[in-house]
Amino acid sequence: MADLYTVNKSPFEKNSLENAIRFSGEGASVLLIEDGVYGAMAGTAVSDLVASATGRKFHVLRADLKARGISEDRLIDGVELVDYAGFVDLVVSHDKVQAWL
């Protein structure tokens, strides 16, 4: 098992996503919530953060993505949508949760 990293900051505002990736090991999962969901968008100046991070699984909270008007087809390939029940499942299925605020 590995850790779940939650990121709630826009990658344009703060380096939380960058550092969550830097400190996460292979096999870790990153869940983007709140303004963190912008990190899951393809075609932005910071898309490479997620797109080039190999060995990590990325998830994005559907409710927060929808609230911000970002459609699923704007997501970086391989990013998986979860609902709150899926969030809970991720918490349960990882060793612990690290909140990168």
């Binding site: 918490v91 909140a99 605020l101």
Partner: peptide, 8 residues
């Protein structure tokens, strides 16, 4: 078993 933190 788990602590989940929500903050700024």
């Amino acid at each position: 078993d788990r602590l989940v933190v929500f903050g700024d």
